[in-house]
Nucleic acid binder design. Structure first.
Length: 513
RNA sequence: CGGGGCGUAGCGCAGUCUGGUAGCGCGUUCGGUUCGGGACCGAAAGGUCGGAGGUUCAAAUCCUCUCGCCCCGACCA
């Protein structure tokens, strides 16, 4: 499948404004992020609705690719999609003590409908554990009904005080998996399995390396027994919680009376899990790979893999060049990027930019949108039977403009895209690794997190909430997670960086989005 | 909710102090010349100056009230 007329993906020239420069990262990182999102045409603040955003077609196309990849993985592990109501009876939220406490401050509540005041207000779901708990209790009665594995793609609302496009908005899109199991061990295995899926997805599809770990009590999901997470390293040294997987224990089972009769005949509460990732991932994608020239996308998530720019001086040349462009697009469109063993094909999407603009303007246009490959085709190339190929970001394997014989284009393009995907992951991992430090001295810690500074720091912590709060109060840095085996430095005892008390292992500390 | 700032053309702004024909840049439309890293020339369209009230011969400008937004401090995928 090839495409040359993707109206939705080809933003009109109205967005092309000379002077709309992208602030450099060194100059002002938050401004750079906003500029990149705007210039890549990913989203814009809704303005008329406080704290909300409009995800524009190009940005939504990236989210759809994320959805497709994850949904395939969820289905492959036995989950089924379902959909639960947006509105949740207020009394449901208050059923689980920790849950209410955590979410009460950010709830939007519907008090009137049909011109009348409601007997019981509804809250707009901030997450769906409660209403799903209610239905699980109706659906589960026997051990034969377990495990129950469902997922929902939905929007949720949390009344945020301060918002940033994709990273934190009042309404956002996500996926929330909810499962019920007969034993705690089985539930825990599910929690870990989904965390593994998130981690593998982040690294192999988003090319975004992550640290897998467990949240401290203060950062734990309201109502969970344990929260597992993946934390990603942003270019400014801050951490982004990119996905979470919760062991809910029997907390919601008890609150919503989700019971089953076991094989031995005993009546028991189910063990539940929930796990989710959101459109925040798009923000993480931006802050992982993009540069001062704009968005950079890994091929596996790029809505457009290659753009072909025709070069011509007169109508006759235009006709001949465009004809050749169509030929190239058709050939490239037959490339399947899917890895061995993938369940579905992943055809290359190609676009010919035949707008009446000068080539240079088109180069900048697509560069800002992060299209991985640019192909220039002009009269000189036609004569020589070659095409000019350039990757959005230089990699050791491919630097600057390269000329390849037309006959080799398809093979070259495929190889370059696959190498590019790997190169982005490698570059991101190197950035994270070289900027990750081990700190053992409080003064050093203060210097590391002075002002807006942040990086990934492995430090000893005495395990107390008081120390954790003190670190946060003094530096704004927080404990992102206690690493899982294989993540971070090998566990070894030491002394807490703040209190000096004994500590069994180092934890990951950074400022966070 | 406390402190600071701002509402004038699609976007960014000037004009407000000192009332007197509503302007500039970018973008948009049309025509032409251009086209291997952000083109140029010519013409044109586009604004009840956030809203309401008041002062005045006359208000974007002065006064009163009001609405909305942004930034900074207490929460979070």
């Amino acid at each position: 499948m090839f495409a040359t007329g993707f109206g939705m993906l080809a933003p009109a020239m109205t967005e092309e404004r000379k002077g709309d420069k992208i602030t450099t990262r060194a100059e002002d990182y938050p401004q750079w992020y906003q500029d990149v999102v705007r210039e890549a045409d990913l989203a814009e603040p809704a303005k008329v609705v406080k704290g909300c955003m409009v995800i524009k077609p190009y940005g939504y196309a990236i989210w759809e690719k994320i959805q497709r990849e994850l949904d395939t993985r969820f289905k492959a592990t036995g989950h089924q999609n379902a959909y639960f109501p947006l509105l949740v009876p207020q009394s449901f939220i208050t059923r689980e003590a920790q849950h209410v406490e955590g979410f009460a401050p950010e709830l939007a509540v519907v008090t009137h409908a049909g011109g009348e005041k409601l007997e019981e207000p509804y809250v707009i779901r901030p997450t769906s554990e409660t209403i799903i708990g209610h239905f699980f209790s109706k659906w589960v009665s026997s051990w034969r009904d377990l495990p129950l594995l469902v997922n929902q793609w939905a929007n949720v609302m949390r009344w945020e005080l301060r918002t940033r496009l994709f990273l934190r908005t009042t309404e956002f899109l996500w996926q929330e998996g909810h499962t019920a199991h007969a034993t705690h061990d089985e539930a825990l295995a599910e929690v870990r399995r989904m965390l593994d899926i998130y981690g593998a997805f982040a690294e192999s599809v988003m090319a975004m390396p992550v640290i897998r770990g467990i949240k401290t009590a203060s950062e734990r999901f309201a109502g969970a027994v344990e929260t597992f997470c993946i934390e990603a390293f942003m270019q400014d040294g801050k951490a982004l919680q990119a996905g979470t997987s919760h062991d809910l224990g029997q907390n919601f089972g008890k609150a919503f009376d989700v019971k089953f009769q076991s094989e031995s005949g005993a009546l028991e509460y189910v063990w539940q899990t929930s796990w989710g990732v959101s459109t925040r991932l798009v923000g993480g994608l931006v802050m992982t790979h993009s540069d001062d020239a704009g968005l950079v996308l890994p091929p596996r998530l790029a809505p457009i893999h290659a753009v072909i720019i025709p070069i011509y001086k007169n109508p006759d040349e235009r006709t001949r060049v465009l004809e050749a462009c169509e030929r190239l697009a058709k050939a490239l469109g037959d490339i399947d990027l899917a890895q061995d063993g993938a369940r579905q094909r992943d055809w290359l999407t190609v676009q010919i930019d035949d707008r009446d603009l000068r080539p240079g303007a088109k180069f900048y246009h697509w560069e800002r949108r992060g299209v991985p490959i640019r192909i220039e085709l002009g009269p000189k190339d036609l004569e020589k039977g070659q095409v000019c190929l350039k990757m959005r970001v230089d990699t050791p394997a491919a630097t600057g403009k390269q000329f390849v014989p037309e006959a080799e284009l398809v093979a070259t393009a495929r190889a370059r895209l696959l190498a590019y995907q790997d190169a982005l992951l490698l570059a991101a991992a190197e950035r994270m690794n070289t900027r990750t430090v081990q700190l053992d001295n409080w003064d050093e810690f203060l210097a590391t997190f002075a002002g807006e500074n942040s990086t990934f720091a492995w430090c000893h912590w005495d395990g107390s909430a008081a120390t954790e709060a003190a670190i946060k109060a003094e530096t704004k840095a927080t404990i992102r997670c206690v690493p899982l085996p294989g993540q971070g430095p090998a566990p070894a005892p030491g002394r807490c960086i703040k209190s000096g008390a004994p500590s069994p292992q180092r934890v990951l500390i950074a400022k966070a989005y």
